[in-house]
């Protein structure tokens, strides 16, 4: 009986092309646990071959990584209690580093293929995409949609660690034994020097913001020709550089709301439809057209999960009880009474 279940039979079975008797045969065969791996290996092979739709792996992976690194360390407890020999540890270490080196190499090669300046590794996200990047020093950066992170090819980690961000990103910085500062440049005038661990940067034409979650960072601002301003942030502080070139500092009751996007959450807090429109443009590349000034000034509050522009638009329209029409990369908001 055992020998009559073949891979071909299993494939026919997944496709629904077997008789009742053959089905019974498979059921009996599977009562033997040793046969399980083959059953699921063939199922896996079939799902790889017969793709029904293409899930967004990179966004899902970024969410999963965020989840993993929010959890405490897990140690495998079932390992045999025999002491690890030095030799084995070395091998494991070597293997780990070769994996890490391969990943870094692959990222490097892809960065080069996408060209731009030869001086930087460029990590970029498309509209609607988020991505988690691990830097060579172990620091982790989660990029929001429509964002570029530039990491120097040469000299990163030798003396200083300087990166540049255009868009929006959340940083979790690893402290090095030799206390190397980590510097984020957001443009010609504003830099963030990291003295601690976790913070988020928003650097888009509309505004520049820095929010500190944990640890300590300093924000240096030097408008053309004028003396430099330096602010040191405490956790929960947010610094905003407005359009007229002024720095504002405020303390947020819930700083984590500023990085809700890492979980695909959209948080609105008395946010005007005009700001929502700007956000939709930054995140999804849609141009928002709001009919009427009164409509643009309507505000909404609340948070919800959304992965696509349509999910955001539907929720916003529902909350404000308005209508929206989406045409290619344009969205028109109008009130229902128009």
């Amino acid at each position: 009986m055992k020998s009559s279940v073949t891979k071909q039979l299993l494939m026919d079975y997944y496709a629904g092309r077997v008789t009742a008797l053959q089905k019974q045969l498979i059921d009996d065969w599977l009562r033997e646990p040793a046969n399980e791996p083959l059953f699921y290996a063939c199922l896996h092979e079939r799902e790889l071959a017969q793709v029904q739709y293409e899930p967004d792996l990179s966004a899902a992976l970024a969410r999963y990584q965020t989840f993993l690194y929010q959890q405490s360390d897990r140690v495998i407890t079932d390992e045999p209690a025999t002491p690890t020999t030095r030799g084995r540890r070395w091998h494991v270490g070597l293997r780990f580093w070769s994996i890490a080196a391969t990943i870094v190499l692959l990222l490097g090669v892809s960065g080069w293929l996408f060209r731009e300046p030869m001086l930087y590794h460029i990590y970029r996200t498309a509209y609607g995409e988020t991505r988690s990047v691990q830097l060579t020093d172990g620091s982790r950066v989660i990029l929001n949609a429509n964002t570029r992170l530039l990491v120097p090819r040469l000299g990163f980690g030798a003396g200083t660690r300087t990166v540049r961000v255009v868009g929006e990103a959340r940083f979790t910085i690893v402290h090095t034994p030799d206390h190397q500062p980590f510097v984020v440049e957001t443009g010609p005038n504003l830099t963030v020097t990291v003295l601690g661990t976790e913070f988020a940067v928003f650097a888009r034409p509309r505004a520049t913001r820095v929010v500190l979650m944990r640890g300590k960072v300093a924000v240096n601002y030097q408008p053309g020709g004028r003396p430099e301003t330096r602010l040191t942030l405490q956790p929960g502080d947010m610094v905003t550089l407005d359009g007229s070139g002024k720095l504002h500092r405020q303390t947020l009751p819930k700083p984590e709301q500023q990085t809700a996007w890492t979980d695909h959450q959209f948080v609105f807090n008395n946010t005007s439809l005009r700001e929502v429109g700007a956000m939709i443009q930054e995140t999804f590349g849609l141009v928002a057209d709001i009919k009427g000034e009164r409509l643009a000034q309507q505000t909404l509050s609340g948070s919800f999960d959304a992965h696509t522009a349509d999910e955001v638009l539907t929720a916003v329209a529902e909350v404000l009880d308005i209508r929206y029409i989406r045409k290619n990369n344009r969205v028109i908001f109008r009130s229902k009474t128009d």
Partner: peptide, 9 residues
């Protein structure tokens, strides 16, 4: 992830 989503769907 991808094959499992394809299966669950």
């Amino acid at each position: 992830y991808k094959p499992l989503c394809n299966h669950a769907v």
